[in-house]
């Protein structure tokens, strides 16, 4: 009796929730479904099912090369961003540092600047210093973009670190470097691992910066873009599905790791 009044808004809320889930998942589901279609056109009805497109993708030299190239760029930019980001986070929490708010704001800027603006300014920057477009420029761009995420994750963890931990290491005979590598870094470990996975995903996913900074060798998003330009085919669906499954798995794992780090 009493529930008839309160159930109204609640039911509406639940309905909206499911509508939103549907809206999120429908395009992805369609894309995945089409990758199993045994025909050349991406359209209903699906009719016969096949795994041929996947077999084709796995034999596609262009696709495999683009994958490898993307992974290489992701690895390099992740390594650079993690090192830089950790260093900046350490600087921000260090004693006697003035202007830590400014350092923090500057470090986080690339995360909020629109990708387009960031890409254009990076392009202008590299031509100013006579740096050619290509691998090095892409890595530079991806690094700048990823640093803020490492800084935030490392900072959160650093701030929860008992102050005395480093003091204890120093007290037991460790100099600053040993204390960092044997105590601070292992303590940061889970947060950094989460941050690194995030960097990898950002880099693999990036299109705009790569487009402005890249040379002739295509990364994975650029290859898929080029293929889409030439017309849709279930092969592209298969490619995208592979990327989706792999990145989703990696992303979920990163979330799991950072969650564990927060509760520990």
């Amino acid at each position: 009796m009493r529930n008839t009044v309160s159930d109204g808004p609640r039911t509406t809320l639940t309905a909206f929730y499911w509508a939103f889930i549907l809206y999120l998942l429908l395009p992805l589901t369609l894309m995945m479904a089409m990758s199993f279609k045994d025909a050349n056109f991406v359209a209903f009805p699906i009719g016969d099912w096949t795994l041929d497109w996947y077999a084709k993708v796995m034999q596609d030299k262009q696709f495999l090369e683009a994958c490898l190239y993307s992974i290489m760029i992701a690895a390099a930019s992740t390594l650079a961003a993690t090192t830089l980001g950790t260093w900046i986070a350490m600087l921000i929490v260090a004693d006697g540092i003035r202007g830590r708010t400014i350092i923090f704001a500057l470090a986080c800027l690339p995360a909020v600047v629109p990708g387009m603006i960031s890409a254009i300014s990076l392009r202008i920057f590299i031509s100013t210093i006579d740096m050619p477009t290509g691998t090095a420029a892409i890595i530079l761009g991806h690094t700048v973009h990823a640093v803020p995420f490492v800084v935030v994750m490392a900072l959160t963890r650093l701030r929860s670190m008992p102050r005395n931990l480093v003091d204890a290491a120093r007290d037991l005979g460790a100099d600053g470097v040993v204390a960092f590598f044997r105590v601070t870094l292992p303590y940061l470990g889970p947060a950094l691992l989460g941050g690194m996975i995030f960097c990898v995903l950002l880099s693999i996913d990036d299109f705009v910066r790569t487009f402005f900074l890249g040379g002739y060798r295509p990364t994975l998003p650029m290859l898929i873009f080029a293929k889409v330009q030439g017309g849709m085919s279930p092969e592209i669906n298969a490619m995208a599905t592979i990327v989706l499954v792999v990145t989703a798995a990696v992303g979920l794992y990163a979330e799991f790791i950072t969650r564990r780090a927060r509760t520990r």
């Binding site: 008992p162 005395n164 931990l165 003091d167 204890a168 290491a169 007290d171 037991l172 105590v183 292992p186 303590y187 470990g189 520990r264």
Partner: peptide, 13 residues
């Protein structure tokens, strides 16, 4: 000299 800290400061890992 060595210190026993108030919060022990044991290395958690």
């Amino acid at each position: 000299v060595n210190i026993v800290f108030q919060d022990y400061a044991l290395f958690p890992h």
